[in-house]
């Protein structure tokens, strides 16, 4: 069930030319919804802060000396994956347990993992490849 309650007058409200400009009253959220949305907003602001910090770290990483390139690649991808996880979980609402989407994305991730996995595996049989990561 949706939590939004639409007021019964919504459908019969006279259309005015300033529909888009007037502050509409057609959605009147319940107290519970208001509380939930306010929590959600705080969460979005926190995720935004995480994303900003992640971007700063990504750029800062470039000025840090790593002993091997694979370490830099690992750190860069770790930061990117962390940012991505926050975006998917919070901005894209996957945090709120959406079982069927998990199923869709689970199958997709199997294919992506296979794609990346087989390609990476094939590198070991290419002559001279992989020096970049050493």
């Amino acid at each position: 069930m949706s939590e939004i309650s639409t007021s019964p007058g919504a459908l019969t409200a006279p259309a005015s030319p300033s529909v888009a400009t007037s502050k509409s009253a057609v959605i009147s959220p319940s107290a519970a919804t208001i509380q939930k949305i306010q929590r959600e907003r705080k969460l979005y602001a926190a995720v935004y802060a995480v994303l900003l910090i992640g971007t700063v770290l990504t750029v800062a990483m470039y000025y840090v000396h790593f002993d091997a390139v694979w370490q830099m690649v690992a750190v860069a991808l770790l930061i990117a994956a962390t940012k991505a996880a926050f975006v998917v979980a919070v901005f894209m609402h996957l945090w709120h347990g959406q079982r069927d989407i998990y199923r869709i994305m689970f199958f997709t991730s199997i294919f992506v993992a296979a794609l990346l996995g087989f390609l990476t595996y094939s590198l070991f049989s290419l002559p001279g490849s992989g020096h970049y990561l050493r």
Binding site: V112, L115, L116, L119, T120, S122, L123, L126, G128, S129, G130, H131, Y132, L133
Partner: peptide, 11 residues
Amino acid sequence: SAYVLLRIGAR
């Protein structure tokens, strides 16, 4: 993944 292959496979 094409990028990863080409990047790591580059001589």
